[in-house]
C-alpha cells in the first residue's frame, strides 16, 4: 500500500474541513492515533478518495474506525436506526400508513410481513 505523503488533497476536498479548518483528514486517518471521538465526522461523499493522488482511501479508514469501535462510541441515533433495520428491514419507520400512501401514489404495496420475517431471520432475531 502507498503511504500518505500528507499533501493535503483529501483535506482540501473534504466538506468537513470547509466547516472546521482544524479537521485535517490525513492526520486523522493515517496518523498514529485513531480518534474514536471523530466517529460522526464523515459525510460519506468520497471526495477524499477521489482526490488522493496516491490512491489512498480515507473514507474507508473512518468506516473501519467506526466498525472497530466500541458500542459506547456510536451515536444513540445510529444505534436506533441499526435496531430499526434488524427489527423491520428499514432504517425509517415503514408501516401500513406508509403503504396506504404508496397505494395512493400508484406504487406497489410493500409486503412488510415478509420483509420483517426474512430480515429477522438473517439478523438472528
Amino acid at each position: 500500500m502507498n503511504e500518505c505523503k500528507e499533501c493535503g488533497a483529501c483535506t482540501n476536498a473534504c466538506p468537513l474541513n470547509e466547516y472546521d479548518e482544524n479537521y485535517i483528514v490525513y492526520k486523522i486517518f493515517f496518523g498514529p492515533e485513531k480518534d474514536f471521538k471523530l466517529w460522526t465526522r464523515c459525510c460519506s461523499c468520497f471526495l477524499c478518495e477521489e482526490n488522493c493522488p496516491y490512491g489512498l482511501n480515507p473514507r474507508e479508514e473512518i468506516f473501519k474506525i467506526r466498525r472497530n469501535s466500541d458500542r459506547s462510541n456510536i451515536p444513540p441515533r445510529i444505534i436506533k436506526y441499526y435496531e430499526n433495520i434488524k427489527r423491520t428491514g428499514f432504517v425509517f419507520n415503514i408501516d401500513e400508513y406508509v403503504n396506504e400512501e404508496r397505494i395512493e401514489y400508484g406504487l406497489v404495496k410493500l409486503n412488510l410481513d415478509r420483509i420483517k420475517s426474512e430480515v429477522n431471520k438473517l439478523f438472528n432475531i
Binding site: 433495520i85 428499514f90 432504517v91 406497489v108
Partner: peptide, 18 residues
C-alpha cells in the same frame, strides 16, 4: 414491481457491520 425489498441499510449498516 417488487414488493419485498428491504432498505439498503445505508451508511448506518456500513458503519456498524459490513
Amino acid at each position: 414491481p417488487v414488493d419485498s425489498f428491504s432498505c439498503c441499510g445505508s451508511q448506518v449498516l456500513e458503519s456498524i457491520d459490513d
